[in-house]
């Protein structure tokens, strides 16, 4: 899976209260959440991301709360893939479950500039910026299976014979 797009760049420790503030968590509608993505840090994010973008960021992107709306909001706002130096564990899983791919790339914020157009191979982790080829860590194994299935629930339906009712 190859994904291409212009870069919106952020720093280290972008937390989930930045990605989607708690006051919006009483809803799960992607279109509503998209309008408030990254609101405290970048109120123009929704407009900037709407044509499809690659978010590049520093360390522990998505740290903090377990709110799955963080993944839903970014994806619905137009984020096609996130390339960060590292990810918080819960956020990583939430993105996989919501079909938003992520690449771990050390020095991502040093190698990539705001506005660069990057080409990302989701499985190998290769990131191309102009003539430069950067090697990150792609999505593999269990996480890749879940991403391809369309999230953990669809994955469960495929791999197990979980009854759909009863209780």
């Amino acid at each position: 899976m190859i994904i291409e797009g212009p870069v919106l760049k952020y720093g280290d420790k972008i937390d989930t209260d930045i990605i989607i503030p708690a006051r919006h968590l009483k809803y799960t509608d992607p279109n509503y959440l998209a309008q408030h993505a990254m609101e405290p840090l970048d109120p123009e994010f929704y407009k900037k991301a709407s044509k499809g973008v690659v978010v590049v960021a520093g360390k522990v992107f998505g740290m903090g709360s377990s709110r799955e709306q963080a993944a839903i909001a970014l994806k619905a706002a137009g984020v096609r893939v996130i390339v960060a130096e590292s990810f918080a564990r819960i956020f990583y899983r939430n993105c996989i479950n919501n079909g938003l791919p992520l690449i771990t790339l050390p020095y991502a914020t040093k190698e990539i500039k705001e506005g660069d157009v990057v080409k990302v191979n989701v499985e190998t982790g290769e990131v191309r910026v102009g003539n430069k080829v950067l090697n990150g860590k792609g999505i593999t194994g269990m996480a890749l299976d879940i991403l391809k299935a369309g999230g953990i629930m669809e994955y469960l339906k495929r791999v197990s014979q979980v009854p759909t009712q009863g209780g």
């Binding site: 377990s66 819960i90 939430n94 629930m153 469960l156």
Partner: peptide, 13 residues
């Protein structure tokens, strides 16, 4: 901690 989808999966399985 986990997100809603992962917890739903754990509730079921």
């Amino acid at each position: 901690g986990m997100g809603a989808s992962d917890v739903a999966a754990a509730v079921i399985t």
